[in-house]
Design a protein around this nucleic acid. Sequence first.
DNA 1: AGATGAACATGATGTTCATCA
DNA 2: TGATGAACATCATGTTCATCT
Lengths: 118, 118
Amino acid sequence: MNQFLIKQRAVIKLYLITFIEKKKMYGTQFLEEIQSQCNQYGFSPSQPEIYKALHDLYKDGIVTRKNQLKGDEGFQEVVIYQFTNDGYEKAKLYKQQIKADLDRSQDLLRKIIKDNYR
Amino acid sequence: MNQFLIKQRAVIKLYLITFIEKKKMYGTQFLEEIQSQCNQYGFSPSQPEIYKALHDLYKDGIVTRKNQLKGDEGFQEVVIYQFTNDGYEKAKLYKQQIKADLDRSQDLLRKIIKDNYR
DNA sequence: AGATGAACATGATGTTCATCA
DNA sequence: TGATGAACATCATGTTCATCT
């Protein structure tokens, strides 16, 4: 079984977990946050990718969903994500696994460069 | 337009160019060489991927194809790849471009780790 | 039997569109 | 009107199969 570099989906889930650790936010904000931080590296995922990743985390039992009115403006409703009871533990484990894959990806990139550039 | 990490296809073409620089080889050997070198990093592309990448290089006008009998054993015919007249120049340019993408990928991985761990 | 490559299948991600409050 | 998400399309890659010597 082949595993090239880490997948975008995994990285998005990683960012989402980190955001949820820090403060409650909703889909559109997650998207804008990632895009503005990573744009300069060419990384700018599409909007549905964020929701797919959020649904993954929900299906994995890591987060709960809660509809909530957006504070300041009119009647706009947003979906807020928080960790489930054991979600934070699961999330920490998941982050560890992703870290291993990130490290492996770095090692692979280094090897590719070493093999092909003097 | 989103560009996450560098694509496997580009990396395979990079290895092929480096192999062709060093010595003439054919498809199956390219595959075995990459797999044996990169297996420990989880990178183990499939056999048709090698041929697709070789056809890319051919379509790009970087290499020529030559049918040749495999030296030692029976009547086995293999396809040998060599640089075209201006192929080596093109290949060097291509390697530079890939190097930029590899560097960008390393930077992005570093940023992801920095953003999400301790 | 080993090498090459076509055809097909799957997976990852993006684009477009609908819905809801 | 902004947020959410479904449906659809495309691209990257893998699996299976055929062919040729």
